[in-house]
Design a protein around this nucleic acid. Structure first.
Length: 104
DNA sequence: CATACCGTCCAAT
DNA sequence: ATTGGACGGTATG
């Protein structure tokens, strides 16, 4: 893996339960604007169970995508997981987004 | 080295 | 709500 990706995962692991972050915030916390690179890194998902990629959402409050899909059954499972962590999701979007948003 | 891809973002329409 | 361009980094050959 690359250094960049390692940093992404490291930051991601610092996000506590019930909180989410965005690709943008993540990238910026790494002193970079590579939002897409973050997404790509997560997509390759080298350490899936250990990395809470479901806590990463789009800046508009949308869920973004998961496991290479923006929609699908897998996604719904992740939504359920988020809900079980205290994050409310409605219509594939985060509710009270600014409340659960994690600022690094 | 060059090209294509990306789970995005933002501004303009 | 939709489009179209932009940017940084990785993947692949």
């Amino acid at each position: 893996m690359t250094v960049f990706a390692q940093r992404v995962y490291r930051q991601l692991k610092t996000v506590p339960m019930g909180r989410v972050t965005t690709y943008k915030a993540l990238a910026e916390s790494l002193n970079s604007r590579a939002y897409q690179a973050v997404g790509q890194a997560l997509r390759h998902n080298p350490d899936a169970p250990n990395i809470p990629c479901h806590r990463v959402v789009a800046s508009n409050g949308g869920l973004g995508g998961f496991n290479g899909q923006r929609t699908g059954k897998q996604l719904e499972k992740k939504i359920r997981l988020l809900k079980s962590e205290g994050v409310k999701v409605v219509e594939n979007k985060i509710k009270n987004f600014k409340d659960v948003f994690w600022r690094f």
